[in-house]
Measured scan of single mutants.
Amino acid sequence: WEITFERNGKRITVRTTDHRLLELFEKLWRNGADERELERLAEEINR
């Protein structure tokens, strides 16, 4: 799966075969987690 999240013109794409990681990322994104931390998390998930 691949999903791109966008907020205030900032886009972060997450790619993984584990839908649970996408759900976790989406919850953090929707709850306003720090964008720098989300970028780092996305990099780890995308590996």
Score class of each variant (00 low, 15 high):
Glu37Arg: 06
Arg7Cys: 10
Arg40Val: 10
Trp1Asn: 07
Arg7Gln: 09
Ile45Trp: 04
Leu24Gly: 03
Glu43Trp: 02
Leu41Asn: 01
Ile45Cys: 05
Asn31Phe: 03
Phe5Trp: 05
Ile3Lys: 14
Leu21Ala: 10
Ala33Tyr: 08
Lys10Asn: 09
Leu24Ala: 12
Gly9Ala: 02
Val14Cys: 01
Arg36Asn: 15
Trp29Val: 12
Glu2His: 02
Glu23Cys: 11
Val14Ile: 15
Gly9Asn: 07
Glu23His: 13
Glu39Lys: 05
Lys27Asn: 15
Val14His: 00
Glu37Thr: 14
Ile3Phe: 10
Asp18Tyr: 02
His19Ile: 15
Glu39His: 09
Glu2Ala: 01
Glu43Val: 08
Thr4Val: 15
Arg15Asn: 08
Arg30Asp: 14
Asn31Leu: 05
Arg11Val: 14
Arg11Tyr: 12
Glu37Asn: 04
Ile3Val: 14
Asn8Cys: 04
Val14Ser: 00
Arg20Ile: 12
Arg40Pro: 03
Leu28Trp: 11
Asn46Glu: 07
Arg30Pro: 05
Asp18Glu: 07
Glu2Arg: 00
Ala33Met: 10
His19Ser: 11
Leu28Glu: 13
Leu24Glu: 13
Asn46His: 07
Arg7Ala: 13
Arg7Phe: 12
Asn8Arg: 03
Leu28Tyr: 12
Ala33Ser: 08
Asp18Val: 04
Arg15Ile: 09
Leu38Val: 03
Lys27Phe: 14
Glu39Thr: 10
Thr13Pro: 01
Lys10Pro: 01
Asn46Met: 09
Glu26Gly: 02
Leu41His: 03
Ile12Thr: 03
Arg40Glu: 10
Glu35Cys: 09
Glu35Val: 15
Asp34Gln: 05
Asn31Asp: 15
Arg7Asp: 03
Arg11Asn: 08
Thr4Trp: 06
Thr16Gln: 01
Lys10Phe: 11
Phe25Ala: 01
Arg15Val: 10
Arg15Asp: 01
Thr4Cys: 08
Ala33Asp: 04
Glu44Trp: 11
Arg36Leu: 15
Asp18Gly: 02
Ala42Pro: 00
Asn8Pro: 03
Ile45Glu: 01
Thr13Asn: 04
Glu2Lys: 01
Lys10Thr: 14
Asn31Gly: 13
Glu26Tyr: 11
Phe25Tyr: 02
Arg15Ser: 09
Phe5Asn: 00
Phe25Leu: 08
Arg36Asp: 15
Glu44Tyr: 12
Ile12Ser: 00
Arg47Ala: 14
Ile3Ala: 10
His19Arg: 12
Asp34Tyr: 09
Asp34Gly: 10
Asp18Arg: 02
Arg30Cys: 14
Ile3Gly: 07
Val14Tyr: 01
Asn8Glu: 09
Asn8Asp: 14
Asp18Gln: 05
Leu38Ile: 07
Lys10Val: 15
Ile3Tyr: 10
Leu28Gln: 08
Thr17Ala: 10
Glu43Gln: 12
Arg7Val: 15
Ala33Phe: 09
Glu43Arg: 09
Leu21Val: 08
Arg11Gln: 14
Glu39Pro: 01
Leu22Met: 11
Asp18Ser: 09
Arg36Gly: 14
Thr4Arg: 02
Ala33Arg: 02
Glu39Asn: 07
Arg11Asp: 03
His19Asn: 10
Asn31Ser: 15
Phe25Gln: 00
Leu24Val: 09
Glu37His: 07
Glu35His: 12
Arg20Ser: 12
Asn31Cys: 09
Arg7Trp: 09
Asn8Phe: 03
Glu43Ile: 09
Glu35Gln: 10
Arg11Ser: 13
Gly9Phe: 01
Thr16Met: 05
Asn46Thr: 10
Glu35Asp: 15
Thr16Tyr: 05
Glu44Lys: 12
Leu22His: 02
Val14Lys: 00
Lys27Arg: 11
Gly32Arg: 03
Glu6Ala: 02
Thr16Phe: 12
Arg7Tyr: 11
Thr4Ser: 11
Leu41Val: 10
Glu44Ser: 12
Ile3Trp: 06
Glu43Gly: 08
Thr17Ser: 14
Glu35Trp: 15
Glu44Cys: 15
Glu2Met: 02
Arg36Thr: 15
Arg30His: 15
Trp29Tyr: 10
Gly9Arg: 01
Ala33Val: 11
Ile12Phe: 08
Thr17Ile: 07
His19Trp: 13
Lys10Ser: 09
Arg11Ile: 11
Glu43Cys: 06
Leu41Ala: 06
Arg11Gly: 07
Glu26Val: 08
Ile12Asn: 00
Leu21Ile: 09
Asp18His: 06
Asn31Tyr: 04
Glu39Arg: 06
Asp18Cys: 05
Asn46Ile: 10
Thr16Arg: 01
Val14Leu: 13
Ala42Leu: 12
Thr17Asn: 15
Arg47Met: 13
Leu28His: 12
Glu44Pro: 01
Leu28Val: 06
Asp34Phe: 15
Gly9Ile: 00
Asn8Ser: 07
Arg40Phe: 08
Leu24Gln: 11
Ile12Arg: 01
Asn8Ile: 02
Arg15Trp: 03
Asn31Pro: 04
Asn8Gln: 06
Trp29Phe: 14
Trp1Ser: 06
Glu44Phe: 13
Gly32Asn: 07
Leu24Arg: 06
Thr16His: 10
Glu23Asn: 06
His19Ala: 13
Arg40Thr: 11
Arg7Gly: 07
Ala33Gly: 08
Ile45Gln: 02
Ile45Lys: 01
Thr16Glu: 01
Thr17Val: 08
Glu37Pro: 01
Leu22Gly: 02
Leu21His: 05
Gly32Leu: 08
Leu22Asn: 01
Thr13Asp: 02
Arg47Ser: 13
His19Thr: 12
Ile45Tyr: 03
Arg47Thr: 10
Phe5Val: 15
Arg15Gly: 03
Leu24Asp: 07
Glu23Gln: 08
Asn46Asp: 05
His19Tyr: 13
Ile12Tyr: 08
Leu41Gly: 00
Arg7Asn: 07
Glu44Asn: 07
Asn31Trp: 03
Leu22Thr: 02
Arg20Ala: 14
Ala42Gly: 03
Asp18Ile: 04
Leu24Ser: 06
Lys27His: 14
Thr13Arg: 06
Arg40Lys: 12
Arg36Gln: 13
Leu38Cys: 03
His19Met: 14
Ile45Ser: 02
Glu35Gly: 07
Asn46Lys: 06
Glu37Gly: 04
Glu6Cys: 11
Asn46Gln: 07
Ile12Gly: 00
Asp34Val: 15
Ile45Gly: 02
Arg7Thr: 12
Ala42Asp: 01
Gly32Glu: 09
Asn46Arg: 07
Arg40Gln: 12
Glu39Trp: 04
Leu22Lys: 06
Ala42Thr: 03
Glu26Trp: 09
Asp18Thr: 04
Arg47Lys: 14
Gly32Trp: 05
His19Phe: 14
Ile45Asn: 02
Ile45Val: 04
Leu21Met: 12
Glu6Met: 04
Glu39Ile: 13
Glu2Leu: 03
Gly32Thr: 04
Ile12Gln: 01
Thr4Glu: 09
Asp34Pro: 10
Trp29Thr: 05
Asp34Thr: 11
Ile12Ala: 01
Trp1Gln: 06
Ile12Val: 06
Leu28Ala: 15
